[in-house]
Design a protein around this nucleic acid. Structure first.
Lengths: 245, 245
DNA sequence: ACAAAAGTGTTTTCCTTACACCCATGA
DNA sequence: TCATGGGTGTAAGGAAAACACTTTTGT
C-alpha cells in the first residue's frame, strides 16, 4: 500500500467557450472572418512552471470554498468573465502533469455570451484563441481543451445548452447559428425550426427583432428545464447525430 | 480572495455495479428473487467520521499515484473486486461533506461481472446492496450512488458498456437481460437482436452455448471500439430512449 | 411430440429529410 | 418591386415497433 503523507495540491481551472458573431476578438491570433466562430480565452503564465506559456484560467482551491465557487472566482479574477453556464468537466491528476509539485486539477467548462466577456479583454496577458488551432499550452492544457471541445460538441446534441451562448432572448436563426458554428455543419432552417420548436426547449416571447432588412423574426427565450439537469438524454437537434465532419 | 493554506485532502472512491443473474449475493439485505438484479458492494466504516455506517469503497490518494490507479487499488484492498470497466464519475468537494477535515473525493464507477467479485465477499464488513434501496450511508454517498446510477442508465443507451457486466463471450439474450435489468424495461427480443447486430458492436464467435433446454444460442464477443472511447454518441439500443418507467 | 427460447419475416407507423413555396420587411 | 431571410407545407425515404412465424434443441 503506497504511502500518503502529502498527496497533492488541488487546483481549479476552467475552459471558457464564447461565440463571436462574425467578428474576431481583440488580441486574437487569427485574421477576422465574416462567419461566427468559437473562441476561448487563455492567460499567460507569469510564474514558475511553464512561465510565458498560455494556460487555462484557474487557481488554487480556497479553504472552505466549494469547487464550483473556486472556478467562478478564479475565472473572474483572471479574465473578468462571468459565465451563465458553468459545469464540472473532469478531474486531471496524472502524477507528472505539473513539474515539481503534484497538482490535481478539477476542471470546469463554461459557456458565455460575448457581452459577458467585457472585462479584462484588453489585458495583454489575456488572449482569445481558436480552440481548434492552439499553440503549445502549459501543462496538459492542450488535452484538456480538446476534451472540453469534444464534450461541448457532444452535449450540444442532447442538452439545452446552446442558448447559453446567446442573450436572454434570441431568434431561431441565431440559435441555429450556434449549432452550425460549434459543430461546423449546415442545418436546414425549416427542419431545425420544427425540431427545436417540438422539443419544448423554447418559449415564444411574443416580440420580434426589428432592424433587419427582411421579415422580422420572432424572439424566443429558453424554457425552464423541468426534468433533470442535463443528465437524461433529451434529443434536441437530431440533425447533429451525424458525425461532425 | 479566500486564503489557501491547506486546501483539502484528496480521496478516491468507487461505485461498483455488478449484475447477479437471478441470485441474491451472500450477506445481502433483500430476499432472493429469480430475476437478475443490480447490486453494489459497500464497506462498513471502522473509523472516525461515520463509524459503523456503510460507505463506498475508497481511500486516500497515494503520493505519485494516478487517480485511476488509486481507485483500482482501494477497490481491490477493500472489496477484492477487479473491474473490467473503470471510469471517472465526478469529483465531489462540498466544504462540509465530511465532518472535521475537508475532503475532496474523486469518484470513479466500475462495472464488474459476478466472477470478478469472488474475493472478500464473506467479509462481514463488506455487504451487497440494491442501489435503488439503500440505507443511510456515510457522508454524501447516497447522492453519489444516485448520480452514478443515473449515469449508468444513461450511458447504457449510447455507449458499448453493457458487455462489461458479462463474460468474454455471451449470447444476445444475456446482453438484453443486462439492459432489461439495469433500465427496468422489457425489450422485444427480435428487435433488440436486429438493433444490436446492426450497430456493429458485436462479433460472432462461431460457437454456441450448449446445455440449455432449448435451441442453442450463438455466442458473441464485443467488437473492438474503433472510433473514440465512449465520448461520441453512438446509439446502440434505440429502445431505451424511452424514459425508464 | 412438446415446451421453450432462438432467430427470421413482414407490416405498420412514425420521424427525418429534402425542397417547394409563401410571408413580411427594408431598401 | 425586388432581394432577403423568416416561416409553412408536403411528399419521399427510412428506421423502429409490433407481432406472426419458423428453427432447433432438451426432455
Amino acid at each position: 500500500m503506497p504511502q500518503h503523507e502529502r498527496d497533492a495540491r488541488l487546483a481549479v481551472s476552467t475552459v471558457i467557450f464564447a461565440l463571436e458573431p462574425g467578428v474576431t476578438p481583440e488580441g486574437a491570433e487569427r485574421v477576422a472572418s465574416d462567419r461566427a466562430s468559437l473562441w476561448i480565452p487563455l492567460v499567460r503564465r507569469l510564474r514558475d512552471p511553464g512561465e510565458g506559456r498560455w494556460a487555462l484560467p484557474g487557481g488554487w482551491l480556497g479553504a472552505g470554498e466549494a469547487l464550483e465557487a473556486a472556478a467562478a472566482r478564479t475565472l473572474e479574477e483572471t479574465t473578468g468573465v462571468t459565465p451563465r453556464f458553468l459545469e464540472q468537466l473532469y478531474t486531471f491528476g496524472a502524477p507528472d502533469r505539473s513539474p515539481g509539485e503534484r497538482v490535481v486539477s478539477v476542471v470546469y467548462w463554461a459557456l458565455v455570451r460575448p457581452e459577458e466577456t467585457t472585462g479584462a479583454i484588453d489585458d495583454p496577458n489575456v488572449r482569445w484563441f481558436d480552440p481548434d488551432d492552439l499553440p503549445d499550452l502549459a501543462f496538459d492544457h492542450n488535452a484538456i481543451v480538446d476534451y472540453a471541445l469534444t464534450r461541448l460538441r457532444s452535449k450540444l446534441g442532447y442538452a439545452q445548452i446552446a442558448h447559453s451562448f446567446l442573450g436572454p432572448t434570441f431568434t431561431i436563426a441565431e440559435l441555429r447559428e450556434v449549432y452550425e458554428t460549434v459543430l461546423r455543419v449546415h442545418l436546414d432552417p425549416a427542419n431545425f425550426r420544427r425540431t427545436v420548436e417540438a422539443s419544448g426547449a423554447l418559449v415564444e416571447t411574443g416580440e420580434v427583432r426589428t432592424g433587419t432588412r427582411h421579415r422580422p423574426p420572432k424572439l424566443y427565450r429558453p424554457a425552464e428545464a423541468p426534468t433533470g439537469d442535463g443528465m437524461f438524454r433529451v434529443p434536441i437537434a437530431p440533425h447533429l447525430r451525424k458525425s461532425p465532419s
